[in-house]
Nucleic acid binder design. Structure first.
Lengths: 111, 111
DNA sequence: CCCACATATTCAATTTATGTGATATAACCA
DNA sequence: TGGTTATATCACATAAATTGAATATGTGGG
């Protein structure tokens, strides 16, 4: 594991790098911390879904889901694929999956 | 792993439970997704720190750090211990640590 | 008691996020 | 072409998060 350690010996350049990474991580976490987006990502872990399917799954309106997907898309977490009229979304990589699995274990198993 | 799967057979009660858990997870993720709080938590992984130490580590003002700690405290992620004038904070459990390690791997290792 | 230091709280100002309704675009079909 | 379905985007209103300055609280020392 080894999380970043900051001491008096840490140079400004190193500090900048750490702050930069913290910013990315922070953005990513903000993107997935929204309740609706969290649910969307959970559903996408089991495979791609259309926007309409997601609307039904998370019980939200079309515009809301579309905007949440838009945010996830801009954040680079999901990618759309058009098939006729419908658009299917899927996870770009397993970053969200990895985090979600931990979070799921933490919040849905025990306690 | 097995993230929650929602089908037409999922009862309302089950749905409610899932939504409830999603809310907890969402709150937790929101708490840790703030850049300053993220850094604070990272530092606390390596052991308890005083407020002043944290101010220096994350280069933020007293009031800001105190407020961020307050939020983490209310969220149940950290706990204070007073020793004379100074107050030391530490992680309540390793929930943050587990998530942070994954996030650190994802954002600070490769890419 | 008074002062200085460490930390917390409060409040107002601002920023950012979110949901909603209306409208736009794109594809398909008659 | 016109209508319908699926999705995206926009503009606005509202809510939530964040920041900064000021002030309060608690502790130890003289």
């Amino acid at each position: 594991m080894s999380l970043p350690v900051i001491t008096k010996e840490t140079t400004q350049t190193e500090l900048d790098a750490i702050v930069q990474k913290a910013k990315s991580a922070s953005c990513f976490l903000k993107a997935i911390s929204h309740e609706g987006r969290l649910m969307i990502l959970c559903h996408l872990v089991s495979g791609e879904k259309s926007v309409t399917e997601l609307e039904d799954l998370i019980l939200a309106r079309q515009a809301a889901v579309s905007q949440q997907l838009s945010r996830l898309r801009l954040e680079g977490l999901v990618i759309p694929r058009r098939d006729g009229k419908t658009i299917y979304y899927r996870l770009v990589d397993d970053k969200p999956k990895q985090v979600l699995e931990i979070v799921y274990d933490l919040f849905c198993r025990d306690n």
